[in-house]
Amino acid sequence: MTAEKKELKILIIGMAGGLAQLTSRLILKNNPHAKILGIDSRDLSQCPKLKGIEYMRMKYSRGNFENIFRSFEFDIVFHLARVSHSSNKNDDVSKRLDLNLMGTNRILSLCLSFKVKKLIILSTYHVYGSLPDNFVFIPENSPLQASIHYPELRDVVEMDQLCTGWMWKNQKEMSTVVLRPCNIIGTQIQNAITKYLTGRLTLNPVDFNPMFQFIHEFDMASILERAIEELPTGVYNVAPNDFISIKEALEQVQGQSIPFPVSLGKPINKLLKFFGMDVPDYFIDYLKYSCLIDNQAIKKHLGEKFYRYNVRETLDLISMR
């Protein structure tokens, strides 16, 4: 590490998330002189108190958010604060639109105004959509079709498009990396797929058996950390080389599962919503059709073996939770 790198000032937005906390620890491990400010609108009191990390609870759509850019002069900004779709509740939609779109737009503008050197944004592979005519493996330049079929993913797709459009427009001023990871799973992750796999009683599709890619939270955190130095401006799919069918994945996790036809998933989901056990609507189609992403672009920069755990090891690790 050079002297300049030792003084890195890093902002992590979405610090209450498990992935953000893992990433911050990895950054500090590899760069003990880094100063990290972690912010989140959620409670941060449970976050570990570590030397080099400061926490602030705030909404990044509010006025005081600008002040922290002014005060800290960040070199690197991680935008890991995309609001996920683990619920279908209607009141979430406006919140998601506000944070994912308006909030992201604000982050982008502030990064540019305050001359941040690098912005690393966490998007998702869900932007491609789970469609019966998906080919393998989907590269980064494929159309983002998710919002055509799932209006609830509109904000996710628009956020991704906002970031990528902005990235190319401002590439001379600052470096931006947009990461579209496959399913991130781990003991500290609370997304829909982790909940599905580790649920006490999981529904096991009998009429479809799509292929899934999984990346362990540790590997994802490591890629985020390496993105600071090793990934140039661009969009990168993040997925390991191997994949697994959902049936095998459920067997690997060894949870209790009951067979059910996914074709009846949407009516069943309405019933589940009635009992407050709702599943995101788009998630049902992900249990029908494969959406396998291509990892050639990221491999060019991080090497052939850019992850530690293969898909079976990743599943083994979450089955221990």
Binding site: P132, V206, D207
Partner: peptide
């Protein structure tokens, strides 16, 4: 064909 339940699988 690919999107038919059971048959596609």
């Amino acid at each position: 064909m690919a999107q038919l339940p059971f048959i596609g699988k």
